[in-house]
Amino acid sequence: MTEPPHILLVEDDENDVFFLKRAFTAAGVTAQLDVARDGREALDFLQIGKTPCLDERAPPALVLLDLKIPYVPGLEVLRQIRAEAKLCAVIVVVLTSSAAESDLLHAYKLGANSYLVKPSRQEERIEMVSVLAKYWLEKNQCPKNCPG
């Protein structure tokens, strides 16, 4: 049996974490969901700038990245992820409440794979999670190894 995919959720709002986890459950998506509560935690989790890696953890398949997070803003986290060669195959989906054009532009410029505005309703949230899992975790193809 294959291991469930590894997802890093970068989100400081406990409520949103709670709703998203419920949506994953409701959508029936099995995943190993880690949560980073701020930018620093996220960077630590991804071991950015740390070579060789301290532990043997493989990088997550998908990062759900909020933009407005403490310490290191989401876009900066994104920039650093994209600057790290070993994380080249990591899918970064921005999940934020801002639909601001400037944020959108920035995010894509820095290499976001997708940009989603946080749904308000659970129904929409469940739909979003199942579409995300279906597309990015099942259909989408990524290189198995990135140059270190």
Binding site: N15, F19, K68, S97, S98, A99, K118, S120, R121, Q122
Partner: peptide, 25 residues
């Protein structure tokens, strides 16, 4: 302000909505 509205104002709203739905469900 807009930025803040879109983020900060909507976060509690989402919580309100989410928990009400959770309450129902």
């Amino acid at each position: 302000f807009s930025y803040s509205v879109s983020h900060d104002l909507r976060a509690p709203l989402r919580a309100m909505l989410g928990f009400a739905e959770a309450l129902q469900d």
